[in-house]
Amino acid sequence: MNIKKNPHTQLKKKKRLDLNLLVYFHAVYQTGSVKHAASFLNCSSPNVSQSLQKLREIIGDPLFIRDGQQLSATTVAARLYDETKDNIHELLYSIENLSEKIQRKLVIECMPYFSIKITPLITLFLQSKNIDCEIVQMSHTTVESVFWERLSLKKVDLVFGMKVDLEGSKMGYRLGSDTCVLVCRKNHPRIIDSYIYGFDVTESITKIHSDISELHKMRSLNNDYFQNSPCSLQAKSLLAICSHISVSDSIAIIPSSFYEKFKEVFNLKSLKTNLQMPDFDEYMYFNKASSDKELYLELYRYVQDNYDKV
């Protein structure tokens, strides 16, 4: 009589099957002993015995019968071994290779301007540790909760950016701080070396468009100025803002490190002003449960020690 097996029962068995059970089974089959298998796998005998018992329950066969000091394989065990001996090694090899490939990729997320500061430091750190690793850099300019969610779900390894409120699963370390400067193009028709709000002609401004709370300081510290001055551009990118400034009469507040790196490229000059220039702390964040926590802490110390040298 041909009895069809219940597909739901088969699915349950597949869910219960742990690849490690087959590893323990192969070790016992090859050594003929739970004790020798435990020694071979560098684990405890009870651990091997418990794994065998789980596999027995799934297969529905005792698998091994004691024959003096040795364990003798049943016909089911012999067939199971023959069916899996090649595949198990190929599968384990593939998993090990996949693990190595995953470990050779470091996914970081940070604001575009901040990547200019942090990417070379990460590169130098990996070189100093002789780690062959692909850096995957993602940009964030959206609400903080979005990239915190990606960090929690381990879609990214590290987040670099401004200080934010942490949840319990995240670890944050201060790297340093940055200040801001007021800038315009060098050949501005009215501004020479200073801009005094309330005295000089009101100039149009550019604004960085972001939901990141620390960036709001650029407006909140000078709230009246940003409300009363005409806006010529809103952009998420500092490169876009500086490109706009380089050919317009607008002015902008930008991070000083970005200004120092690109002032000649965009023909910019910094201005003395009575406007209050914001400053902000910059942090490195990762998940507490990360398997690479010690390596990330070494990276943090390296970045902190070399933060002002790049």
Results as ranks from 00 to 15, higher is better:
I241N: 03
H244K: 14
S243H: 03
K261Y: 07
K261H: 06
V247P: 02
S257C: 09
I251S: 04
Q234Y: 12
Y259I: 02
P255H: 04
S250E: 10
S237L: 11
L233P: 06
F226M: 11
S237D: 13
K236T: 14
D249K: 10
S232K: 13
I245M: 00
Y259V: 02
I245L: 03
A240T: 09
A235P: 06
K236S: 11
N228T: 13
S248W: 07
K261D: 05
S243G: 14
S229R: 11
S243D: 05
F258V: 04
L239Y: 06
L239P: 02
S256W: 00
F258I: 01
F226W: 12
N228W: 11
S232Q: 15
N228M: 14
F262S: 07
I245A: 03
S248T: 15
S256L: 06
N228C: 13
A240C: 08
L238G: 01
S257L: 12
F262R: 07
K236F: 06
I254W: 00
Q234H: 10
P230D: 15
N228Q: 15
S229M: 10
F262W: 10
I254L: 05
F262P: 04
A240I: 01
H244I: 05
S250Q: 08
F262C: 10
S250I: 02
S248A: 09
D249F: 04
S246D: 03
Q227V: 11
S246C: 09
L233V: 01
D249Y: 05
S232W: 01
K236A: 08
L233C: 06
S248Y: 05
L233A: 06
F262L: 14
F262M: 07
C231I: 15
